[in-house]
Design a protein around this nucleic acid. Structure first.
Lengths: 262, 262
DNA sequence: CGCAGACTTGACCGCGCTCAATGCGAGTGG
DNA sequence: CCACTCGCATTGAGCGCGGTCAAGTCTGCG
């Protein structure tokens, strides 16, 4: 009845191979290229050891694999190391609502700290590796390191804000505005990682974009081609090039502008 | 330009009186009737003193008064003691998006812990009193009391979940489903406070409901009367009586049921 | 080469927004 | 006490954005 993972079988063989290779090794935050984005960002160099002590190098996940779902007991938060993750809530009826996309350096699972099970389902959008922070140890550590605690509060607070922004987008903005906003959000997140902010490939399918933004797939498609015809972007499949960032920013604010003149 | 406070004058006299009576006194969580809902819920009896040490009894706010807005430097979280509060994001263009309603025992400001200023504007929906938790002291205290820290994580996590639920409501559900969901949410929150879950008065105006749920006021009105005609509720102004809770629950799930048969 | 899944495009229609008028209750002043 | 006003809520008429349904196209992969 609930058929979430509709992906192929042949990936399993690969998964097992990698699982053995990288299983429960201790991670090295010191050498990680994401140390200026991820949790280490908040801890002093001399405390980095204690963070490394609790981190577990997670395994690799193939495209479509679940990192956890709503029936998994909540034990850990996960930092995306490479690849990307989508989280979604799946209702009793099997309806899915995508709640977020997570890129390298971002922390998944903050919405699950209030219950026994994860509050959402996390699925790898591509070949993805994660670092695992067992929550008990993490809480213990944040009790000792005020800076880390502060950072956790910041991250969770930011997550609330993001979600509010999404709610705003969903309740007030047109399809074009929502999609422009998403493209710009992705753009700035690529930029944070020192990648091109105008030339990237979408980690998620049109379907996920549509679900996330509360639209039909067809509408997403139409807006993409409309943007392309207007010269705002160039898109072929998941490859996207932002040709006119300022115009896109204008689109996201179009709503406000139109409704303020009277 | 931004004309938010449109309420009457005569309340001012009263406000001043109350302000003097209860101003920056130390609050007593021990005697507070909300101690089983609010932060004290998470601390041992013998640690309650340290929590009381940092709490400040806030002043009274009249209907429509701002507790803080997006230009206020972030310093504290606030627990609603009596009355009720609405939070909203106000964009550059003056557009408002209501992000939440807060009732006694609930904590306002968790979305603001990641920036220098509050991330939203908090407005009293009626005569309201709050307790103030200065954030620096609160963080210091949560570093010492693991239970309290754990509770903060829970609260923030819950806030994320709530917001995701809202996003889901906004992107997938019809007007009727959204309003049924809101009524049931309010109902259960009144019940938590040992008040009637079927007979209460809405703290917010139709306008706020509409904004929160991403609808037009007119739609809210129409759905209310439709529900009334169907015998689900009885509503006159802000007074609401839920006549058929089970039917309302069915309405919220109607969507899922309809879309699962094929 | 052929198939499956993802994406695109087109035609149609309905929910909910908009605009506009009316109803209603509370506070105000004559 | 009634008439007036101002916010707020309700009700009705019409229409547009975006959803739905149905083909058609593209792409990767065995």
């Amino acid at each position: 009845m609930i058929c979430i993972n509709s992906d192929g079988l042949p990936e399993m063989a690969q998964a097992i191979r990698f699982r053995q290779a990288t299983s429960p090794l201790k991670a090295s935050c010191q050498q990680c290229s994401l140390s200026n984005l991820c949790l280490p960002l908040a801890v002093q160099d001399n405390d980095l050891d204690s963070l490394e002590d609790i981190v577990q190098q997670g395994r690799m996940y193939d495209r479509g694999e679940h990192i956890f779902d709503q029936s998994t007991p909540f034990r850990s938060c996960f930092a995306v190391k490479s690849g990307s993750v989508k989280t979604s809530i799946i209702t009793e009826g099997g309806e899915e609502q995508v709640t977020g996309f997570f890129m390298p350096g971002e922390l998944v699972g903050l919405d699950s700290m209030s219950g026994e099970f994860y509050a959402c389902t996390a699925k790898a959008l591509e070949r993805t590796s994660v670092c695992e922070f067992p929550i008990e140890k993490l809480e213990e550590l944040t009790g000792k390191l005020p800076d880390l605690q502060h950072h956790m509060y910041r991250l969770m607070s930011q997550e609330i804000q993001n979600s509010h922004q999404l709610a705003m987008l969903l309740s007030k903005n047109t399809a074009e505005e929502r999609i422009a906003a998403l493209l710009l959000s992705l753009s700035s997140r690529f930029q944070r990682r020192r990648m091109s902010p105008t030339n990237f490939s979408l980690p998620m399918a049109r379907n996920d974009i549509a679900n996330f933004l509360g639209l039909a797939v067809e509408t997403v498609s139409r807006v993409f081609t409309r943007f392309q015809n207007q010269g705002l972007i160039r898109a072929r499949g998941r490859e996207v090039e932002l040709l006119d960032v300022e115009a896109l920013q204008l689109v996201t604010r179009e709503f406000s502008r139109q409704n303020c003149q009277h």
